[in-house]
Computed example of a mutant assay.
Amino acid sequence: MTDSTISVENTSNEPEPSDSLKAFGAAHKAFRKRAGYTQEEYAPLVRYQPSTVASIEQGRRFPPRVFVERAEEVLDAFGALKGVYKHVSREKGLASWFRQWAELEEQAISLYTYENRFVPGLLQTEAYALTLFQARVPLLTESEIEAQVTARLERQSLFAERPHTAFSFIVEEHVLRRPTGGEELMRAQIDHILEATEPRNVEVQVMPMSRGFHPGLNGPIRLLETPDNEWFAYLEGQESSQFIVNPKTISVLHMRYAKLRSQALTPEDSRSLLERLRGVL
Rank of each mutant, 00 (worst) to 15 (best):
T2H: 02
S7V: 15
S18M: 09
S18F: 06
D19C: 00
A23D: 09
A23V: 03
A23W: 00
A30G: 02
F31N: 06
Q39A: 11
Y42L: 02
A43R: 10
R47H: 11
Q49A: 11
I56C: 05
R61C: 00
F67R: 11
V68A: 07
A71Y: 13
V74T: 08
L75Q: 04
A77Q: 04
L81P: 07
H87A: 14
V88F: 08
R90A: 08
G93V: 13
S96D: 06
S96W: 14
R99Y: 03
A102Q: 14
A102S: 15
Q107R: 01
A108W: 01
A108D: 06
Y112T: 12
E115F: 07
R117G: 05
R117Y: 05
V119M: 01
P120W: 03
L123K: 03
L123I: 06
Y128E: 08
A129H: 02
T131K: 05
L139K: 15
T141Y: 03
A147Q: 13
L153V: 05
E154P: 11
E154N: 03
S157I: 07
L158P: 00
A160N: 00
F169Y: 13
F169L: 09
I170M: 00
R178G: 09
R178D: 14
G181I: 03
G181C: 11
G182H: 12
E184K: 11
H192L: 13
E195R: 05
T197N: 12
E198V: 10
P199R: 09
V202L: 07
E203D: 11
E203Y: 10
V204F: 08
V206K: 11
F213Q: 12
P215E: 06
L217R: 09
N218R: 10
R222D: 06
P227T: 03
D228W: 05
E239L: 15
Q242G: 02
V245T: 14
N246K: 14
S251K: 15
H254G: 12
H254K: 15
R256N: 07
R256W: 10
Y257V: 10
A258C: 03
A258F: 01
K259C: 13
L277T: 00
